[in-house]
Design a protein around this nucleic acid. Structure first.
Lengths: 123, 123
DNA sequence: CCTACTATGTCCGTAACAACTATAGTTGTT
DNA sequence: AACAACTATAGTTGTTACGGACATAGTAGG
């Protein structure tokens, strides 16, 4: 085996929109469920809304397939809320995100070559 | 309403992988079901395989939502097969494909800005 | 006290999906 | 002509993903 984690990252592709957005949300920092929901709504300008059913269901599945892990670290107690549960990407989760982003990049490039999409110089 | 077709193209986003690949497959030319299946397998290098259940189910739904229409034109009789049913994008289908490709392009760009993905000069 | 917001979670119906099966025409081989 | 392999469309079935509704409870503000 080449790397370290469970299985082949590309075997999980393509990701569902919910899973992709959750991975993107946790790429920079740990977040709790409700925070993930807000970040996605904010980042997509409200175009993509994640319902609580999709959110917690997706998190459960992502934990089971080792994309996410629950974090023990708590932020500044003044900013904390003891109900919160914080999640972070596992190394495997990062590999899967990377693989999916590359797949999408390839897809967009292909569309540009076929002139289905305008290509900008420094995109 | 701004354009012409049924409703707002972006209301159907994000597309399922099956629907996106079918639209991409029909972007350049009309194809029949089996031909769509083969083109997708070829274009993705075998990474994405569309089973017949997904294919014909997706086509049915896409016809219902006016993304596709059945074509009356038949190719050279020598190359034809009377069982075939040919499909083409409707103007609305093309709008939806365009909207989805722009959404993905934005997503890839965002990932590059956040340095989750390497950005090439002329991508 | 009441309301709104934060926060996590379950339940349920619907839609999408992949694998499997059915059916039948076409092509190539012997 | 017989047969197998391939092309082609379509239905069936079981699983998963999803979103909305609901449940529960803590926190903040009027």
């Amino acid at each position: 085996m080449a790397s370290s984690s469970g299985s082949d990252p590309s075997s999980l592709l393509p990701l569902t929109p919910a899973v992709l957005h959750i991975l993107l949300s946790l790429a920079d920092e740990e977040r709790h469920g409700y925070g993930i929901m807000q970040e996605i709504e904010q980042r997509t300008g409200g175009e993509f809304t994640l319902g609580s059913g999709s959110l917690y269901g997706s998190i459960k599945r992502m934990m089971a397939s080792r994309l996410l892990a629950e974090s023990d670290e708590r932020p500044d107690p003044a900013l904390d809320d003891q109900r919160r549960r914080y999640y972070r990407l596992t190394p495997f989760g990062r590999q899967v995100l990377d693989a999916e982003l590359h797949r999408l990049q390839q897809l967009v490039r292909n569309a540009k070559v076929r002139k289905l999409l305008k290509g900008l110089a420094a995109s």
